[in-house]
Design a protein around this nucleic acid. Structure first.
Lengths: 209, 209
DNA sequence: AATTATCTTGAACGATCGCTCAGAAAGTGG
DNA sequence: CCACTTTCTGAGCGATCGTTCAAGATAATT
């Protein structure tokens, strides 16, 4: 026996995500959000609690989408390593678009959050850790399929891959030329493919390089 | 025939650098700086013009120091590739300390600056580009010394190395465990060393891994 | 010591920040 | 149509932002 909310909460959250992703936490004001969400401050606070809680929700949404994309790419490929290489190459292509930001929002948040917003730092760090675990599982699969030698350390390979990807996306945020981004993505992908010295079932391919 | 300035400008600039490096541009207020520099607002504005100009000077100082460190490491080594690997390993060790931030201030600035502070973005991007050129020159040297095959592309290798280093430093900013940072730095360094298939003067070393 | 030139100080400006809340508006059930 | 419940609105809160500037303080020169 009452009124319905006029706004579409998921849509509003998506708009907030876009703005936060583009500008970061500190450079995004509630008044900016009022415009982007087409909501008045009272409604925003009723729906999301505070600027920090809204950012946190947006961050979780972003992390979920990012993780899903990685998993989706993996699902389409028979080879874990090839899947990761494909993922990196697809990043290189998509980073040309007019996204809110080319850089990873999790990395942006880790870098910009101070002690005052410790919760944001922790959330972003945790999400990056989850992605790292996903990639470690992928490398573990590669070991079990014989694409990597048994002595390969999936956790360390995952770290290295994630560092390269984050570096790629910082690079994309920095340069104007899309071509350089595609080249860099291609080089990173090629580095991953070069690890793949063994065929599934333990049969060796050819010598390196 | 007048009074001298009471503050030490270079020291004040260094203090400002530390604060900006730690918190970023938006999260650092003039009042924070008043405390860190032990200067009153009037003096700060007389000495540096504005918050943005002060940040810009600090950024240039940072870039200069960073570049000098890379060049210094290079100067101590006979092999360009080994020098770069050493540099990466030294980063992994130093990133354990209580620096203002473990992440690269240039990367932080590229990620946090919006259109309103376009000059900051451009300055940080330009400094990163300069570093990239330094590294490209290093790889070019490696080619000429025969450490890399003639077909190796120094510019693309430099891009990849820089992406990995920036990723390493984002990782360092994220995790609590120093050991993981050292491991990651070691893996990146090892990747660089693995490229070194030729000895100086064209003599081949052994086959790859 | 007086003068002069510069520097330091800190109150305060207008703008904006994140956020609140009383009142207007609107949909629901009787 | 009314009573009720919830939502929406936007003026405005206190705090803080970057910045300015008149007035006081200090050193060099005369």
């Amino acid at each position: 026996m009452a009124r319905h909310a006029a706004y579409d909460r998921p849509a509003a959250l998506a708009s907030a995500l876009n703005l936060f992703w583009e500008r970061g936490f500190h450079a995004t004001s509630i008044r900016d959000l009022e415009g982007a969400l087409d909501m008045r401050p009272g409604s925003i606070y009723a729906a999301f609690g505070s600027k920090e809680q809204l950012f946190m929700e947006a961050l979780h949404l972003y992390a979920q989408a990012m993780r899903q994309r990685l998993r989706a790419t993996i699902a389409t490929s028979a080879s874990p390593l090839q899947a990761l290489a494909d993922y990196v190459r697809s990043l290189g292509s998509d980073l040309q678009d007019d996204m809110p930001s080319k850089a990873c929002m999790l990395a942006k948040t880790v870098l910009e959050s101070t002690k005052k917003e410790g919760a944001l730092h922790a959330a972003a760090a945790s999400a990056l850790h989850d992605t790292e675990l996903d990639m470690a599982a992928l490398f573990e699969q590669a070991v079990q399929r014989g694409e990597l030698p048994p002595r390969a350390d999936p956790r360390r390979l995952a770290r290295q891959a994630q560092a390269s990807i984050i570096g790629l996306r910082v690079y994309a945020q920095r340069v104007g030329a899309q071509r350089a981004v595609v080249e860099l993505a291609d080089d990173i992908a090629a580095t991953i493919e070069r690890m793949r010295r063994y065929e599934p079932h333990g049969k060796k391919i050819e010598g390196s390089k």
